[in-house]
Design a protein around this nucleic acid. Structure first.
Lengths: 331, 331
DNA sequence: ACATCTTGAGTAACCGGTTACATTTAACGT
DNA sequence: ACGTTAAATGTAACCGGTTACTCAAGATGT
């Protein structure tokens, strides 16, 4: 592999001139420029970016901490981040943390050892459970909830959940079951808050027995649905905290002979691509996943450029999508 | 940020000793070791990996070229790759190429400029359409087809498709429609080959009008299904080249009043998580996605270690999963 | 007691770029 | 013609580690 010194020798110029020809061509005469380019061509020279990064003390890379990469919502956020990083000439290091703290620590390490310049965290922040924020590690949370103590891009989970439940109430539903995520999960907490607010505003008493815990997977949705189908007084609607659980629950309910949405309405959260294609198509909340990614990346780059960010919290609008999985309860 | 020289000063030892204390502690007396560790502790020293990489001419990173990151199959492969890279202490750079050659070139560049050591390509190889292989860029194809001219980990697409179609034939189907991927896609080509072989072995004539082209998306499956539902002589079974198109097609067929599987059987390919949960659950082919990722990474690391790889092509076994979307045709 | 070997530690070159500073060359004004 | 200034180029230090080589000191053998 040829180096800049080889090029300078070949071109009959100094290494400084070669370096300048590449990074600041206007400071070099056209003749020299040509010599340099010819030499580069001849030697098939490619600058060693490792040495450049080393010298510039900039890795030009950011890390994304993903709890689970095989999750479509995350995939879209990542996509958004990537497209911004792309333009900035940054590479994206993907950290699939599989919900392991140890792995997460390792990836944060990359920043501390200067292999990356900043971090975007896709796991919601929760106290006593978060490695971030850490001093000297520029970080943005891109899947945040209320009260995240470092820069965040998020949706209004409380408001979105409230909107969904209010809609169900407006259809005439009074007994509305919930399939939650894990109890401690901040998204669960926020969305449950929205659910309760909607009930309260309609003067419907909160009933603990209408809650079933899941873990955001298809399987857990199926499981949780049995809690409801076994009830003597089955709820007339089911608010699921994500689409995957909703789809799992739909299967569970159908297998018990319940008709959707006549016997029971069901709603999701996330608007996966498949949700439009299931039977019946799912009423759900669309998060602007790509936008969240883009905005998070923008924010991180502001941090890296040491501009004082104009704003450290962005709440992006959601879209409530009504499809055929919801209907008024039977009379 | 403190450097190794700060540590050496603090510990009253030379930088060489400090370096050795970290990379080869057995070459240093316990007393020196302690001094070094104390100094590191005191100064909160973290070695600068950029300079290490620079010096060692090893980026300790690999690039994954993903056509579309929001695809569950890829996500699983990536997961497999990551877990192996993890153990080797390598980082994974994710290159979402969004089917753009220019982006792909950029990521390959990372290896040429020594920011990464090797590449795993998730797009199937096809002649005149591939940037890889490139001399001096260690690469593995992890989504290959037959005749990939560089190291590959793949499944037997021809055989798998043949198995599916033979099964349909064994149920009594004779008119079997196909929803393909894009015509030029190597997976499409291989799977179509398997379809034709199965027909030939059963002495069923190949009928071009039973082919509808999709592009592996839900939407295209829905579209393509109309080609069949409009036919006067609707096929009794539909072989879809992936699960997403199968799910899209299911929706399309149902909306025309066709009952699944009584009126028409349908099969997919990939075994997405949702495929078990759709209505009816989808008969499909499971690829060992994580395994493919792991094996690909192993292979790449062999290449990087300049061991002569024992094998440069791995064909992993698939699993044919029969669920309720397939049944004998009506009499 | 002296030569030889072993082990731990130090010195300094090196990796391949960038860039502050010095030097050369050309252009210009009077 | 000569001094002044600007532009182009060259020289060499530097980034922060690694490691070949050197050296000193203690252990071992005869």
């Amino acid at each position: 592999m040829s180096t800049i010194r080889d090029v300078s020798k070949e071109a009959g110029l100094s290494i400084a001139t070669v370096s300048r020809a590449l990074s600041a061509p206007e400071k070099v005469t056209p003749e020299s420029l040509k010599k340099v380019h010819d030499a580069i061509e001849l030697l098939q020279y490619r600058p060693n970016m490792l040495s450049q990064k080393f010298r510039n003390k900039q890795a030009n890379a950011i890390v994304i901490l993903v709890p689970d990469i095989a999750n479509l919502f995350f995939a879209k956020v990542i996509s958004g981040i990537e497209s911004v990083a792309q333009k900035k000439g940054f590479s994206v290091l993907l950290g699939d943390t599989r919900d392991s703290k140890a792995l997460e620590k390792q990836y944060i390490n990359l920043v501390e050892t200067r292999q990356a310049d900043g971090i975007i965290q896709l796991r919601p922040y929760s106290e006593n459970d978060s490695l971030l924020p850490i001093a000297r590690v520029p970080a943005v949370n891109a899947s945040g909830c209320e009260n995240t103590p470092y820069p965040t891009v998020r949706i209004d989970n409380v408001g979105a959940a409230k909107e969904v439940v209010k809609y169900l109430i407006s259809l005439g539903h009074k007994r509305i079951g919930v399939i939650t995520g894990l109890q401690r999960n901040p998204h669960t907490i926020d969305r449950l808050k929205g659910y309760k607010q909607a009930l309260a505003e309609a003067n419907i008493a909160f009933d603990q027995s209408l809650l079933a815990e899941g873990d955001f997977t298809l399987w857990s949705g199926l499981q949780a649905s049995e809690h409801f189908s076994r009830m003597s007084d089955i709820p007339t609607a089911l608010f699921c905290m994500n689409d995957e659980m909703a789809i799992g629950a739909m299967k569970g309910l159908k297998s018990k002979g319940l008709r959707l949405p006549q016997d029971i309405s069901i709603t999701g959260f996330d608007d996966l691509d498949v949700s439009r294609y299931c039977d019946p198509p799912l009423t759900t909340v669309a998060q602007p996943a790509e936008k969240i990614g883009e905005r998070s990346a923008d924010l991180l780059f502001q941090l890296l450029d040491e501009q004082q960010p104009t704003q450290t919290e962005y709440v992006l609008p959601i879209e409530f999508i009504i499809r055929q999985s919801t209907a008024p309860p039977r009379a």
